[in-house]
Nucleic acid binder design. Structure first.
Ligand SMILES: NC(=O)c1ccc[n+]([C@@H]2O[C@H](COP(=O)([O-])OP(=O)(O)OC[C@H]3O[C@@H](n4cnc5c(N)ncnc54)[C@H](O)[C@@H]3O)[C@@H](O)[C@H]2O)c1
Ligand SMILES: NC(=O)c1ccc[n+]([C@@H]2O[C@H](COP(=O)([O-])OP(=O)(O)OC[C@H]3O[C@@H](n4cnc5c(N)ncnc54)[C@H](O)[C@@H]3O)[C@@H](O)[C@H]2O)c1
Lengths: 213, 213
DNA sequence: TAGAAGTCGTGATTATTTTCACAAATCCAC
DNA sequence: GTGGATTTGTGAAAATAATCACGACTTCTA
């Protein structure tokens, strides 16, 4: 709760760094420079050094960063030692794909349960995750604070209200609906149609640029 | 090709505005203010007005914006009159979900073909889209300039090289791999594991903030 | 032990994006 | 018509983010 001064842009890159450091350690590397890191994650090396510097002096001049140390540091910073439980709402095309994916691999986030309105899906399991009826939402949700929303857009607002009422604090929203939530609930929109459309727009209107993301 | 001065942040919001305007028109609304728009898409109204202003004076003071006019304008700006063809590489969990989704609904982007390495999938269709063997990539791709990448991370770089060699200019990359491409190829990364992880990070470290996105 | 090479951390600068705030224009009710 | 209510478009300011560039320190080699 202390590191409230870390720029949002930096915070968004932390998981990326963390994942790459994990890979490095698996490969047995013990040190890494901001330059190497930069080439791998496609973020300017000065930006990486700046990002790290918000957490203090993590590296050593002339040497770089010690992989194990840095990894341990990020593990703590990203709370990788405690599992974050997630609920998924809407076991359709997208929802099913997510249930089949192991987010826990290097992430310590786990979908614990799923909900759907379709009686045929209720009672079954996908990837070992039980699917409950959406009417059981309030009963089953327990202490889960994060939800993934993969229901039709028309249902989004109504279900969101129920999630919020039950204490959900973070929503990863894949529906095109822009949902309304109280100030203390955070929503990240992932709008795949818009991502595709904006990629196409950039292609047509920003030819030969060098700025990707 | 002319509007090269439009900020990237603005460009990314255009499809969002476009979609909402479409909905408005379907509802039969003829005018809309930046304030209404703001509430619907959760973007500050001053930002919306600024965004629009890059394209000239689209509204009328004291009145707001004419929905039909604005929509027509964005349709042209976003090239909605011509269909953009897309290829999907990797018909697994995610890839299948995308094939079942109709991006063309209000987007004018269409997945025309898919590729996979799995013989069992090759030759079949999903959502009316044919699945070819990845070895046919160069033969079948034709003039398609945009690709969606939903293959295992380990394959990403190799396949990317082939796509680029064949003339692909835009890649929507869902793999965790940070792929390397020439300057004239644009890559948008959508890294679902990182989105989830960063949402969790924000929840734990930025309590009671009001800034979502 | 000395010098060369490498690399961090950061002050300063620049770039980008958001937001404020208000004059000007328009609308609308009467 | 007139006047109060709206709402745009945009200068200016503020906030946020990226990048430059270099001093300081470390490592490595001989
Ligand atoms: N599939 C894609 O590639 C894609 C792309 C872009 C956006 N999206 C968006 O993601 C969302 C999900 O897409 P999808 O393709 O998986 O849709 P889908 O129709 O396959 O799945 C929706 C699921 O939600 C369930 N559902 C419906 N109402 C419900 C309710 N009230 N409570 C709980 N469950 C309910 C349905 O039974 C179904 O299983 C949609 O909003 C869609 O617009 C999907
Ligand atoms: N499913 C998810 O929810 C999820 C979440 C985050 C990230 N991802 C990433 O998205 C990508 C796809 O995930 P998925 O769950 O759909 O995986 P998947 O294993 O279900 O699908 C991968 C598909 O690619 C095909 N393939 C393998 N090698 C190929 C090649 N050389 N050429 C063409 N096709 C090939 C496989 O046959 C398979 O059909 C992965 O990189 C994964 O890390 C997926």
């Amino acid at each position: 709760m202390d590191q409230n001064k870390i720029p949002q842009a930096t915070a968004k890159r932390l998981p990326l760094y963390y994942r790459f450091l994990n890979n490095l350690q698996l490969q047995g590397k013990t040190r890494v420079s901001s330059k190497e890191l930069s080439e791998a994650v496609k973020v300017d090396s000065a930006t990486i050094r700046r990002d790290f510097s918000y957490f203090g002096a993590l590296g050593k001049k002339g040497y770089g960063y010690n992989v194990e140390y840095l990894l341990g540091f990020f593990r703590k910073t990203l709370d990788q030692d405690e599992l974050t439980e997630v609920a998924l709402i809407g076991v359709g095309n997208l929802g099913t794909a997510f249930l089949n994916y192991n987010f826990t691999k290097n992430n310590n986030t786990k979908i614990m349960m799923a909900f759907d309105a379709d009686e045929k899906k209720v009672g079954t399991e996908i990837g070992g995750i039980p699917i409950y009826h959406i009417e059981e939402l309030e009963d089953k949700l327990g202490n889960v604070k994060v939800a993934i929303l993969t229901i039709p857009a028309a249902e989004a607002e109504r279900i969101t209200d129920r999630l919020v009422a039950k204490g959900i604090k973070g929503i990863l929203n894949f529906t095109p609906a822009r949902i309304t939530v109280p100030d203390d609930v955070r929503v990240h929109h992932i709008d795949l149609a818009i991502e595709l459309q904006s990629l196409v727009y950039f292609l047509k209107h920003y030819p030969l640029e060098s700025d990707k993301q």
